[in-house]
């Protein structure tokens, strides 16, 4: 991989160079500031980078701001960005994930940990390459397939520029690596679009992607008073991690999401109103759960919302919804 490391401490960059060199198979390019990194990225004729290692605390533009800029560059929208931070700097870590970071590394570096992370990053880079190849193939055959194009219900949806919305693997990394102490005040819950299977069957690919993106926006708006990370999990389900000890009042939260969706006035391509209904599952407080248990809590939250949705779909309200989207 071609890696760009950005850190204002030259010793830290030298150290990374030695450690990455020891792991082998990668080329590390060093930058001592965000401005210098952006110059290197903009260099004509230079090969693009596969991965970024960004120190969070830098004078001038910090790593989080640089991460945001990188995510706005199309070619780096899905590139792995690992933020470098000290342990327990949770406020920075939260900002970094909100800005689109994929994962983070803690200082002082440990060779074993770095090796493991680089392996995971390489996997992600290969997945991105496959996805890009697929997108390229899809674009070249677009004219033929345009009329039949359909979005898989389980597929991830690219959601950009909505505060707090991150990719699912980034949310998992976030939970997996925060210490028990840092997770103590956090709560995980999931939100699902009721009757998503029927909506998916009815919607064109574009309508479906808009529906997911707009729902993400409604959830993000409804959680705007809290520090929250939100991720789309596929199947019309969103996982939310909320910090600051908030005990969610899910009834008022769901009301707020419905109000936002109503204001968006969503329609299918044929002009019919979407009338989305969402439901929320049981909130799970992370308390002193380990990172691994916290990741498991994400799955439990999704199971819980599935059950709530099933129940709703079997209720009289479900019959009304079913008729609406039939």
């Amino acid at each position: 991989m071609r890696i760009l490391a950005v850190d204002d401490d030259p010793i830290s960059l030298d150290l990374l160079e030695v450690l990455i060199g020891q792991i082998g198979g990668h080329v590390l390019v060093k930058s001592d500031s965000a401005a210098d990194a952006l110059d290197k990225i903009a260099q004509r004729g230079a090969a693009p980078f596969d991965c970024f290692l960004l120190d969070i605390e830098m004078p001038g533009m910090n790593g989080v701001e640089l991460c945001e800029i990188l995510r706005s560059i199309a070619v780096y929208r899905h590139s792995p960005i690992l933020m470098i931070t000290r342990k327990h700097e949770k406020r920075f870590i939260d900002d970094a994930f909100s800005a689109g970071a994929s994962d983070y590394l803690t200082k002082p570096f440990e060779l074993g940990e770095l090796r493991t992370r680089m392996r995971m990053v390489e996997k992600l880079v290969n997945e991105n390459r496959k996805r890009n190849d697929k997108l390229f193939a899809a674009k070249t055959t677009r004219k033929i397939r345009e009329s039949q194009e359909h979005y898989e219900l389980h597929a991830p949806v690219e959601i950009d520029d909505i505060p707090g919305v991150v990719e699912y693997h980034a949310l998992e990394n976030y939970l997996a690596q925060l210490s028990r102490r840092s997770l103590f005040g956090s709560t995980v819950f999931a939100v699902k679009i009721a009757g998503v299977e029927r909506l998916h069957q009815k919607a064109e690919a574009f309508d479906f992607v808009c529906m997911i993106t707009d729902t993400a926006e409604a959830i993000s708006d409804s959680l705007s008073d809290h520090q929250a990370l939100i991720s789309y999990c596929g199947y019309g389900t969103f996982a939310c991690v909320v910090e600051d000890g908030w005990r969610p009042n899910l009834d008022s939260f769901i009301d707020s999401v419905h109000k936002c969706l109503k204001l968006m006035d969503l329609h299918f391509g044929d002009g019919e109103e979407m009338n989305l209904v969402v439901c929320a599952g049981r909130p799970i407080r992370l308390l002193s759960k380990s990172g691994e248990q916290a990741v498991n809590a994400l799955s439990q939250a999704q199971d819980s919302v599935e059950a709530v949705c099933r129940e709703m779909e079997q209720s009289p309200l479900g019959a009304v919804l079913s008729k609406r989207s039939a």
Binding site: D9, I11, S12, L19, E57, R86, K107, P108, F109
Partner: peptide, 10 residues
């Protein structure tokens, strides 16, 4: 901050 970031690894 700089010392704390690298001294341990060295």
């Amino acid at each position: 901050h700089r010392i704390a970031g690298t001294a341990g690894t060295l």
